[in-house]
């Protein structure tokens, strides 16, 4: 996984709440057996017209938001299915940061596994951020994960919380499985004890 670095980038605003994973990546695109190439299908049903051309009314099709790496979105982003195709498509499209007031639980976890930083801010902060971007579409804002701060050209400086463990893995681009396997002896010890306590869980029992 690529390490998450401090960056300045165009922020796109999506002022909708409860954006669900069925919208992020509709089911007809879930049948691939690879992890890559989902970006072109991101928000498919909103993003494209019947004839396959770009829907000019869809937020992300605004020319000012081209190349955005930061998505500023409404409440409860990513609700619904567990499909990791949702963060895969978001990352493949080019976003590495999502700012919202709240995220659905599974989606939130899935983001960190894919180098995406989901940032929770309060309602007023989100509104101020959306307002500044809407007033100056195309502006670049800066996200500094190490300092846990977002800064805007308009002078907003927003601090945010992030779980220290997740921060560390994102900054280093660490592989989760490799991290866990450092503790393989603990897992083996646990299995011996668990098997003694609940022997019926194992096939030989």
């Amino acid at each position: 996984m690529e390490a998450y670095k401090k960056h300045s980038s165009v922020a796109a605003v999506m002022n909708r709440s409860n954006v669900d994973t069925d919208q992020i990546i509709p089911k007809q695109f879930l049948k691939k057996v690879e992890r890559s190439g989902f970006g072109v299908h991101l928000f498919h049903d909103w993003r494209y017209l019947e004839d396959g051309s770009d829907n000019p009314e869809f937020e992300l099709n605004r020319p000012e938001f081209k190349g955005a790496k930061i998505l500023v979105a409404g409440d409860n982003f990513g609700c619904g299915s567990s499909r990791e195709h949702a963060p895969w498509s978001i990352a493949d499209y080019g976003f590495n940061t999502i700012i919202s007031t709240s995220f659905a639980d599974i989606f939130f976890n899935n983001c960190f596994k894919n180098g995406i930083l989901p940032i929770k801010v309060d309602t007023d902060t989100l509104k101020a951020l959306m307002d500044e971007v809407e007033a100056n579409p195309g502006i670049e804002i800066t996200v500094d994960l190490a300092a846990q701060q977002i800064t805007t050209p308009g002078g907003q400086a927003i601090s945010f919380d992030v779980d220290p463990f997740r921060k560390d893995t994102l900054l280093k681009g660490l592989d989760d499985i490799g991290w866990t396997l450092q503790f393989e002896d603990k897992i083996s010890e646990y299995e011996v004890q668990h098997r003694q306590q609940l022997p019926w869980l194992w096939p030989s029992a």
Binding site: I106, N109, I187
Partner: peptide, 21 residues
């Protein structure tokens, strides 16, 4: 019992554990 993403599916297959808060 809870739902997970595909990275976690891989993680469980490899380690029989899940990272949780």
């Amino acid at each position: 019992a809870f739902g997970i993403g595909t990275s976690e599916v891989e993680h469980i297959m490899a380690t029989q554990t899940i990272q949780q808060k």
